[in-house]
């Protein structure tokens, strides 16, 4: 019954069976159904493809980039688009295509680190506040409110100004400013879940708060959090680029997209490619994350299945 056959039909039957033989099979079946749902949304697939391309580009940057991204060649400066330099060269004669390829690493580095720092902090603060309520809730949520009261970029600017410019400090600053919405979402979810019968049931079986929060509440908050983080990725990229643009993010000569647009803005009329190419890269990747987030929302929406 649960034999996995090499044919598509066998695998499909194994995944979609009504009587899974193991926890792994049940989880795989569920995952497969989610995947089918996701692939029905064309735009989300486009978003996913762009992000996969971004990841591949970042991984194989040394193989893809034809030139050194930081080596200046003043004899070759401000060259327009050509077969040698697909996206032209910048004011120091560096190949813009190579710089964008290497810059994808920085972009990925920023969003991954911000997601790793901000999402767990947000979900932890939110679920703890929502589950315990009372004074714990008040204290944690007022702290969250303080962070929410500042515009993200302004607060990040203040942190970077205090910590000193640089990509690591930019990441810390963005992470510090992006967890409060996650805490809010998790808290709201937790409050709706907290009094449901399945949480009462597990309490009546002697589960402590730690187990209830981590094993029973967090998995239910996770889907809306993943969607929100994905949609926020675009904002994180823009904030990082904005910090770079203001000279507070990645420092020259590192090929950060925001810093590249900033450097190119004095040439915008005569050498448009200096600012257009990195700007387009930022735009395309942000759009891809938004499309992916929308697709994930449709699949992961907890209201879509009971």
């Amino acid at each position: 019954m649960s034999q996995q056959s090499p044919q598509m039909n066998g695998t499909k039957a194994w995944l979609l069976t009504d009587t899974p033989g193991s926890a792994f099979q049940a989880a795989s079946g569920r995952f497969y159904l989610g995947l089918l749902d996701f692939f029905r949304n064309r735009l989300a697939v486009v978003g996913l493809l762009i992000i996969v391309t971004l990841v591949i580009t970042a991984l194989f940057a040394p193989l893809i980039a034809p030139y050194d991204p930081v080596a200046a060649n003043l004899a070759n400066r401000l060259q327009p688009l050509s077969a040698d330099h697909w996206f032209g060269t910048d004011e120091l004669g560096r190949d813009i295509f190579s710089r964008i390829v290497w810059g994808s690493r920085l972009t990925l580095y920023v969003i991954i680190l911000v997601a790793i720092i901000a999402a767990p902090v947000g979900i932890l603060v939110g679920t703890v506040a929502g589950f315990f309520g009372g004074i714990i809730d008040t204290v944690l949520m007022r702290i969250t409110d303080i962070f929410l009261a500042f515009p993200k970029l302004i607060l990040a600017l203040a942190f970077v100004a205090a910590l000193g410019p640089g990509i690591e400090n930019a990441i810390i600053a963005i992470a510090i400013t992006s967890w409060p919405p996650y805490a809010r979402i998790s808290r709201a979810e937790t409050i709706t879940i907290r009094n449901s019968d399945f949480i009462r049931a597990i309490r009546l079986q002697g589960a402590g708060p730690l187990r209830i929060i981590t094993k029973h509440i967090m998995p239910l908050c996770l889907s809306s959090l993943i969607v929100r983080v994905t949609l926020d990725m675009a904002g994180i990229i823009l904030t990082a680029a904005g910090l770079g643009f203001l000279g507070l993010g990645a420092q020259p000569p590192s090929p950060e997209w925001g810093a590249m647009t900033s450097a190119g803005r004095s040439f915008i009329l005569d050498q448009w490619w200096l600012i257009t190419m990195p700007g387009t890269a930022i735009f395309v990747v942000s759009l891809a994350f938004n499309l992916l987030g929308d697709g994930l929302r449709e699949v992961l929406d907890p209201k879509s299945d009971s």
Binding site: D197, F198, A201, I202, L204, L220, P302, D305, S306
Partner: peptide, 12 residues
């Protein structure tokens, strides 16, 4: 204890 609503008492 067994709860009233079996649609709400099992973790989805």
């Amino acid at each position: 204890m067994v709860f009233q609503d079996p649609y709400g008492s099992l973790h989805p």
